[in-house]
């Protein structure tokens, strides 16, 4: 007899199998010939990354726009198909699953998007939006669904007043709460939060971060928290992975990353954040130029064109991610 996914989850939790294990994940957007029959280079959006997330843990994924963070998120949930690699969720490889089984597993893994306005259907009421997850997952009792949707609204700090409203009648912060409510509707074990506060006002950001923290404790959710804001990530995450052009260049616990960053890129990111407090005169690391296009092929380290400590070796060899301190992995030949 085949065991239900939930039963297997419970069994695997006891065996201490990590919640999520990503091995050598790649997503290339393959070359297509354009109308002029010119060969267009393939884009290595995600180029062989590996990490694990344990139960109850929050992993931060940091990097500039274009580094592939969102592609990782979408590939993990199989919203887009990977080029190669493996993603095991409680020991089950997601890429082997048929669509119908995958749909069942999506109950356990959800996503919150950056822009709350474009991630909900503008023509449906809030109540309607929140009932949809239940309808999709075979709860046909309308009254019960409506009740659950109401509870969700209250759980995320909204009221029954919002039930009949439409997305355009809500502010960005309120709508992001709806996005969160929808994500937690089916009690997922794992939630990907893709820049959940980047589009919100400062005073609202703190509210949403606090809400996500509360839910984590209450519902025992593990997060993959994607952000470009190092300060928010420090606040929210247990471990942090720094991405640059499709690769993880450094991964370690929050404390290690912020106290002793080893990759020059991590250091530059930390230094670039404008700081509120006076006193500290900071030493800026001069990082010139922009992130290069993932379509441009180059040999050696991807960061070499902007790196302040570049040497000959960096142009020829690609540095691998290596453990330089316990549980602190860095991909740099000349780490700090």
């Amino acid at each position: 007899m085949e065991l239900s996914f939930r039963t297997r989850v419970v069994m695997n939790i006891k065996k201490e199998i990590p919640l999520l294990e990503v091995v050598d994940l790649k997503k290339y957007f393959l070359p297509t010939k354009n109308i002029l029959e010119m060969q267009v280079a393939s884009v290595r959006a995600v180029d062989g990354i590996s990490f694990t997330i344990s139960k109850g843990e929050t992993l931060g994924l940091v990097g500039e726009s274009g580094c592939g963070k969102s592609t990782v998120a979408k590939t993990l949930l199989r919203l887009i198909e990977p080029t190669s690699g493996q993603v095991s969720f409680f020991g089950t490889n997601l890429f082997d699953l048929k669509n119908i089984t995958m749909r069942n597993i999506r109950k356990e893994m959800q996503i919150i998007f950056q822009d709350p306005y474009s991630s909900v259907n503008p023509a449906r009421s809030i109540g309607n939006i929140l009932q949809e997850p239940f309808e999709i997952h075979n709860c046909r009792d309308k009254k019960e669904n409506a009740e659950k949707a109401l509870q969700l609204l209250e759980r995320v700090g909204l009221t029954s007043e919002h039930f009949k409203k439409y997305p355009h009648e809500l502010s960005g912060g309120q709508l992001q709460r709806v996005g969160i409510a929808r994500a937690i509707a089916l009690n997922p074990k794992f939630v990907v939060a893709d820049e959940p506060v980047a589009a919100l006002d400062v005073s609202i950001q703190a509210q949403i971060i606090n809400l996500l923290l509360d839910l984590k404790e209450e519902l025992d959710i593990s997060y993959l928290f994607i952000s470009h804001d190092m300060a928010v990530v420090e606040y929210f995450c247990d471990r942090v992975a720094v991405m640059y052009l499709g690769k993880i260049v450094e991964i370690a616990s929050s404390e290690q990353i912020y106290k002793s960053p080893k990759h020059p890129y991590t250091l530059a990111l930390l230094n670039a954040i404008p700081k509120l407090d006076s006193g500290k005169i900071k030493q800026r690391i001069p990082i010139k130029g922009d992130i290069s296009s993932p379509a441009s092929l180059q040999t050696g380290c991807a960061f070499q064109s902007r790196c302040p400590i570049k040497e000959k070796r960096c142009e020829e060899e690609i540095p691998n991610l290596q453990e330089s301190a316990p549980n602190h992995h860095v991909a740099c030949f000349f780490k700090q």
Binding site: I204, Q205, A206, Q207, N210, E234, Y258
Partner: peptide, 21 residues
């Protein structure tokens, strides 16, 4: 309400928020 880099994170600590919209 701005998270500050390097501010010691206490377990279960919350950001100070401004309520409402």
């Amino acid at each position: 309400s701005v998270p500050k880099l390097g501010a010691l994170k206490k377990l279960g600590a919350r950001l100070d928020e401004i309520s409402g919209n």
